[in-house]
Amino acid sequence: MEILRYAAFTTDPAGGNPAGVVLDATGADDAEMLRIAADLGYSESAFLIPKKDGRFEVRYFSPLAEVPFCGHATIASATAYAERHGPGLLRFDTRSGPVDVSTEAAPDGTTTATLVSPRPRTEPLADDDLAALLSALGWDRHDLDPALPPRVAFAGAWHPIVAAATRQRLADLDYDFARLGALMARRDWTTVDLVWRESPTVFHARNPFPPGGVVEDPATGAAAAALGGYLRELRLVDPPVTVTVHQGHDLGRPSLLRVGIPAEAGTGIAVTGTAVVLAG
């Protein structure tokens, strides 16, 4: 298998979220895919099994386990495919359902990819779970933005969405890795989407990812899609609208995600970004 390395949601190899990409993983078993993901050490790697007519079965692995869906590895995979075969529409069959990904090439050679998430949904975050989550983060309820109530949101994977009242609270992140990881494992949460709202359509985000063995994701497309569904369902934006998410700045790997939120309830959320090759 040819193993590719890309950083997603950036045009600079020093930014974005690195992902491993295998465009043809035909014949690889779970153990081999997990071994490759662990060897790479990125938060996730994507393994594509070609089918017919632009369809692919796609598996996503962190260094520790398989995850149902990963946005940044999807953007990276679509970009890698477009650079070799030309832009167009790809259909990914993921463990969370079908995901369409379209790519476009700009005159300067930059490829932009847009995924449309599985059907999003939002559920209440139980008081006990919120208390345990805040305790693991070292936060309390006074640190939260009352205009953005905590919820658990899905758009391919489940993420608690917790909004900080200030940018400083978001920047000062030093959590209990083991405690948060144990809570997330019990609840089947993929990352925790910590956000701060700069303006009605501009957010900053950080995503702890202890279930994957990663302290923090520099860019999380699945969480951005879940945030889009959350904002629409709670009527915190006026769709159709595009929301910008800045992530990775506190890690020194700045990332930019654009989240397209359609007006129709239940429709998939579009997440757009670029990706760039990393040196092997």
Rank of each mutant, 00 (worst) to 15 (best):
M1V: 14
E2T: 14
R5H: 15
A7L: 06
A7G: 04
A8K: 02
F9D: 01
F9S: 00
A14W: 01
N17G: 02
V22Q: 07
D24F: 10
A25F: 06
G27R: 13
A28S: 12
M33L: 12
L34W: 02
A37E: 03
A38K: 13
S45E: 09
A46K: 01
F47R: 05
F47N: 04
K52H: 10
R55A: 13
F56W: 13
V58C: 07
R59S: 12
Y60N: 06
A65K: 14
A65M: 12
E66R: 13
H72V: 00
A78N: 09
A80N: 06
E83G: 14
R84E: 13
G86Q: 10
P87S: 12
L90M: 15
D93M: 13
T94K: 10
T94P: 02
R95A: 15
R95E: 13
P107H: 05
T110I: 14
A113I: 05
P118R: 05
R119V: 13
P120R: 12
L125E: 04
D128E: 15
A131Y: 06
L133N: 03
L134D: 04
A136C: 07
L137N: 03
G138M: 11
R141D: 11
P146N: 09
P149D: 09
P150E: 10
P150W: 08
R151A: 14
A155C: 11
W158R: 14
W158K: 08
W158S: 14
I161E: 01
A163F: 05
L170V: 07
A171T: 12
D176G: 09
A178K: 12
R179V: 10
L180V: 10
D188P: 00
W189V: 06
T191P: 00
T191C: 11
W196N: 04
S199G: 11
T201M: 00
T201C: 04
T201E: 08
F203L: 15
R206I: 04
P208R: 08
P211V: 09
G212A: 08
V214Y: 02
A219F: 06
A223R: 03
A226C: 09
A226R: 03
A226F: 05
L227V: 12
G228F: 02
G228P: 02
G228Y: 01
G229Y: 07
Y230L: 11
Y230A: 08
L231F: 05
L231S: 06
R232F: 07
E233A: 14
L236Q: 07
L236M: 12
P240C: 06
P240F: 03
T242D: 12
Q247A: 08
Q247W: 07
Q247S: 08
G248M: 05
L251M: 15
S255I: 00
S255K: 04
L256T: 11
L256Q: 09
L257I: 09
L257S: 01
R258P: 00
V259Q: 00
V259G: 00
V259T: 03
V259Y: 01
P262L: 02
E264L: 11
E264H: 07
G266D: 07
G268T: 07
I269H: 03
V271C: 00
G273S: 10
G273F: 03
T274R: 13
V277Q: 13
A279Y: 11
G280E: 15
